Amino acid sequence: MRLERVAAHVPDGARLADIGSDHAYLPVALMRRGGIATAVAGEVAMTPFNAAQRTVRDNDLEQQVSVRLANGLAAIEPADGITAISICGMGGETIRDILEAGKARLSGQERLILQPNGGEQPLRQWLMDNGYRIVGEELLRENRFDYEIIVAEQDGPVTYSAEQLYFGPLQMQARNPAFLAKWQSILQRKQQTLASFARARHSVPEDKVQQVARQARWITELLA
């Protein structure tokens, strides 16, 4: 379901680079239904690289999907004319670091479709700092985990508040049930953390206490 929702944000006819492609399921599925023109599946580790090659071969798509062993955006060449980049299933900080390290390979014309496993705030911060506007956000629950999808396009400069970076600017507007349920449970955890801080007052740095208290306050206001 998660990859299906990511696929829905890839524009029709895109030239897709799927970074950290694993089994190349996303580019192969999109190619098979005629949703994209061509794809690059990038993998940094040998085992998933071999798995991706196998998926592409089994589907007779070697001409349309190029599987490359490379670190992050080093899988992309200017000649690929990439118009969409998907990076899914890793921490937000890792996705941020991949984008930062590969900045020279971004033309600014690509749509970024990102699915972080946590660490959404620092990833949104990078997008804002680099002139990317968040044009789509989605939250879905699968196997008891909450997954966020962040879609961004370069349209800067753009400014988000600290709260928007924390919650997601479009999520805050939409306030759908999955989003509210997620933050309800996070608020409970924040309150438990603050209670444990109070019991161990002497050993917790004050700025740490303040940070968690501020986040708990933001969530309480959001849910009010």
Rank of each mutant, 00 (worst) to 15 (best):
Q121H: 06
Q191R: 14
L139A: 11
S185K: 11
R175E: 12
F179R: 06
R57Y: 10
A74Q: 15
L170M: 10
A52C: 05
A79I: 09
S66E: 15
S21A: 15
T55V: 06
R5F: 05
G102L: 05
G81R: 15
L73Y: 00
D80V: 04
T38M: 08
I113L: 06
I95G: 00
L106N: 06
H202A: 13
I85G: 01
E138R: 03
Q191A: 08
D22P: 00
E120P: 02
I85C: 02
L69C: 04
L127A: 07
E138N: 11
D58G: 07
T55M: 14
P78H: 11
D146R: 07
Q164H: 07
P122H: 09
A8H: 05
T83N: 06
D207Y: 12
K208H: 13
K190G: 08
Q211I: 13
I76K: 01
P205Y: 06
A84T: 15
G72C: 05
R105K: 14
A75C: 15
Q164V: 04
R68Q: 08
P78N: 11
L69G: 02
S107M: 07
K208I: 15
L139Q: 14
A200R: 13
F145Y: 14
F167Y: 06
Y147W: 10
P157R: 08
Q210I: 10
I82T: 15
M128N: 06
I186L: 12
V67N: 00
G136R: 00
R5L: 09
G168I: 03
V56E: 02
Q125A: 15
G42P: 00
L187P: 00
A17M: 02
P122D: 12
R32F: 07
Y132L: 03
L73F: 02
E4I: 09
E77C: 08
M128D: 07
A37C: 10
G156I: 00
R15W: 09
G35P: 01
G34E: 09
V65G: 02
A41T: 04
S21E: 03
